[in-house]
Design a protein around this nucleic acid. Sequence first.
DNA 1: ACCCGTCTTTGCGCTGGCGCAAATTATCAC
DNA 2: GTGATAATTTGCGCCAGCGCAAAGACGGGT
Lengths: 233, 233
Amino acid sequence: MTISPKDLKQVVVFQRATDEDLDLILKNSILRSIEEGSFFFMQGDEAKYLYILVSGQAKLTQSNINGQQVNLRTIYPWQMFGALGATRDGSATYPATAQALENSSSLAIQSTFLRSMMETRPYIAFDLMQLMTSYIQEMQARYRELATERVEQRVANALIRLAGQSGIRSNKEAGIELSFSRQEVAEMTGTTLYTVSRLLSDWERKGIIKTGREKITVIQPHGLVQIAEGLEK
Amino acid sequence: MTISPKDLKQVVVFQRATDEDLDLILKNSILRSIEEGSFFFMQGDEAKYLYILVSGQAKLTQSNINGQQVNLRTIYPWQMFGALGATRDGSATYPATAQALENSSSLAIQSTFLRSMMETRPYIAFDLMQLMTSYIQEMQARYRELATERVEQRVANALIRLAGQSGIRSNKEAGIELSFSRQEVAEMTGTTLYTVSRLLSDWERKGIIKTGREKITVIQPHGLVQIAEGLEK
DNA sequence: ACCCGTCTTTGCGCTGGCGCAAATTATCAC
DNA sequence: GTGATAATTTGCGCCAGCGCAAAGACGGGT
């Protein structure tokens, strides 16, 4: 697979880049293919590269000392990841682990190179900052959710968010189909797979969703919104 | 009170700014004094300004629909806040509320002005991005903590973090003194004031801390670390 | 010194959600 | 199709932590 400068325009942070800059970026990066289940990088690794997902799907997780993990976000093609460790000063390490959910390919850009580029090209730093800003907002919202909302509300919210993100990628007649296991949803919402399973079964009985193995189809988004707001009782 | 360009150098994001730039920033900002308990801005307000705290102390919180609030961070002099809403495109709103914990004064900088400055001065966008990066990391860590750790571990961690932040500002012989109520600690850790009170009483009995009205003195930081790691049992 | 408002403590009962265990079902490789 | 593997469901018991209520402690203002 080859990547052209034009492809890179799909990356939010590079939308405003000139063709020369895009060329330069490509020259300072390498293509890395990762098979399903393997890792782009692990939490604690030295952050030499930041990545652009070219194809496939990946997840970003963080683990505590006991190995319990939380899911920070799911990565879709042309999204950047690993940028946190890579933009910090000196020899930073990745604060999270990136694992391929399918066979995936990515563009690995040298951190030092992007940093030097930013020093002279305001738009990259600016757009990257905008991206960071949106992550902070999402993390703050999820943090507040975790601190104040009950499990059913958090799970409902997670499904709404996921439907919004990947729903764009599907036709929504007959529901929005999501590909996540109970375990994954649990890691996104700070609960357990048992509780998620019980909730989903309950909601299926009520006709709000349909469930399958590693699959959740949202039939009535409105029903989820109601649960998320804590109105269902 | 007047603020000189030199004062502004204490702001992380302006460390590398030229004197002319600092002058320009001062010219495009106004001094705002807020008395204890009042608000710099509320969640949902249009983000016309971003702030630099000049004196006093403030807290940044976020509330859900029911009014339950979580504490995102405490703001000390020469720290920037309200930058999230202000750096986003168009007419963004603040995602959080900033309230003065003491009589405070701040410098309010026009969002549009700082945005235009960043477009031509890489170092500001770059340094601001670094700052954002550190916030993301902290939020991710706290999120993981909230999702996977038990209450006592989270509270211990919060005290460690607070001691690290404001400990710099005090002499640590005879312990590091923190000025937070049980309610505030509860909002930082996603629990209730009752549980915090019970934990602190327990830890005081063990000699790890001393407690007082709106005051917690850390005597044995090591004891907290042990609890935070879940080893105490 | 005293009062009053606020913060803190603690007893008590309750329950949301955890997590084991075992059964059931879906998926894939061959 | 068949067996192996992994995901899911559900019963059951349990307990960490919530939250009310009431008492107690502290501190600022006059």
